[in-house]
Design a protein around this nucleic acid. Sequence first.
DNA 1: AGCCCACAATAACTTATGTTAGCATGTTAC
DNA 2: GTAACATGCTAACATAAGTTATTGTGGGCT
Lengths: 225, 225
Amino acid sequence: MLNRAAAQRVRTFAPRTDVAREGEKPKDVHLILNGWACRYKQLEDGRRQIVSFFLPGDICDLNIFILREMDHSIGTITPVSIADLPREFFDEISAGYPRIATAFWWETLVNAAIQREWTMNLGQRTASERMAHLLCELYFRLRLAGLADDNSCSFPLTQADLAEATGLSKVHVNRTLQELRASNLIVLKGKMLVLPDLERLMGAGLFNANYLHLDREGRQLDANE
Amino acid sequence: MLNRAAAQRVRTFAPRTDVAREGEKPKDVHLILNGWACRYKQLEDGRRQIVSFFLPGDICDLNIFILREMDHSIGTITPVSIADLPREFFDEISAGYPRIATAFWWETLVNAAIQREWTMNLGQRTASERMAHLLCELYFRLRLAGLADDNSCSFPLTQADLAEATGLSKVHVNRTLQELRASNLIVLKGKMLVLPDLERLMGAGLFNANYLHLDREGRQLDANE
DNA sequence: AGCCCACAATAACTTATGTTAGCATGTTAC
DNA sequence: GTAACATGCTAACATAAGTTATTGTGGGCT
C-alpha cells in the first residue's frame, strides 16, 4: 500500500540541501525512503535548532497540508530519496482503510512523544546526559528500521549537527563526546557509531525507551530483535 | 457536537493534583473546560519538566488511546474541570464527520508545532528570551480562547512552575522576571500578568506567532480580535 | 490576633557551558 | 600531488546560569 503510493513520485536530494522551507505552503507529505534528514527552525539572528531527525521509513508531518504554511524547514543530512504523498492519498485512506488510518495516528502520536522527550532532554539533562540520550534514541530508532547491527550503526551526523540538535556549542559537544569515549560508552569515528555497552549508555542518559512506544502490535515483530 | 459529547462525563480536580500518570493505560481523551493544567515528565532522580500547558478549550492528546501507556503525566495548576471523551466518540466522528475530523488533525498538528517551538526555545534562546517567549505564547493562546483582555490576563503560574517549564532554576526565573520588569516589558503581580508593550516583548523573545497557526479558516473569527 | 506556609526576593559563591582562536586531520577535486 | 575546504580537536578565558542559604511578604486558618 505504502509502497504503491510511494512509487508515484520519488525525488532525490543532495546532502545538506533543503527539502522544504519555513513559510512555504505545505503540499505533499514526505516519506523518507533513504538517508537521514532533519527538521530545523531558525531565529532571525541565525541561531538554528534541529528539532527532530528523520530516518528511513519516517513520515514527515502527516496531514501537514491542513496548515497554511510551514513553521519549520526540512533539510537533508546525507543524500536522501523521498516519496511525495499527495493529499488525496490520505483522504482515500481515512475513508476506506481504518487500520492504516490508525497506523498513521500511531506514527503521529509517537512523533509527538519524541518531541516531548526532546523538550525534557534540553530542559533537564546535562550536556553528557543529553548526548547519551540522543545517541540512544537514534540507535533504537535505527534498529527498529533494521539499520543497526547488534551494537553499532552508521552515523552521518557531524559534531556541528549534534550541537544544533542538543542546543550545545560545537566545542562543548566535542568535550562531551570525549567524555563519553573516555568512559568507554561510545566509539565514534568515521561516520560509524559503536555502543559497547548500551545498558550503561542508557543509564548515563537516563534513557527510558517508553516514549518510543516500541510495543505497538505488529511493530515488535518487524524489529530485528 | 463537542458540547454534547462533553456533557457525557465531567470531572473536577483540585489544584496541584494529577489527572493522569505516566505508565497508566490511556483511556479517554481529556477536554479542558476550565482552569490551567500541564503535561510534565519526570526523571528518576526527581527532575521535572513541564512540556506543555493546557488552557481552557484545549484537548489533551487526541487519540492517545492508540498508545499502550502514557509516557508523561498530566497535572493541574489551578482547579480544573475536564470532560472525558471516550474512544467511541472519535470513531464516530472520523467515520461520519470529516470536517470535524479535519479540525482534530488541525489541533494535533498545532500542538506538535508548539512542542517544536518549545524545543527551539529551550535549545537556543537565552533565559530572558525564553521567558519572554513563553509569556507571549500563553498570552496569545489565552486571547484566542477569549480569556485575555487587551493587554493583560490572569496568570496562575508560580515562579517554580515557570522554572519547570523553561528549564531554568527558580532563582534564575526570579532574576529573569526582575529583568523583564525593569525593562517595563511585564507587570506580574498577584496572579495577574500585564503586558504594557506586547510588540517589544515579542521582540525580546524573538517571538513569531506563525507556529500557532492562528490563520486557520474559521478560527480567526472566533478569536476576540 | 497570631501562626503557618507557600511564594517571592536577594546575596554570595560555584560551576557548567559558551567564546574565540589556532592547529591538526581527513576528504574531495582537479 | 597538492590546494582547498570541512571537520575534529584543544586551550585559555569569559559568562550565563545553578546552588545554597537567608529574609521578606502575603494570604489563609484556628
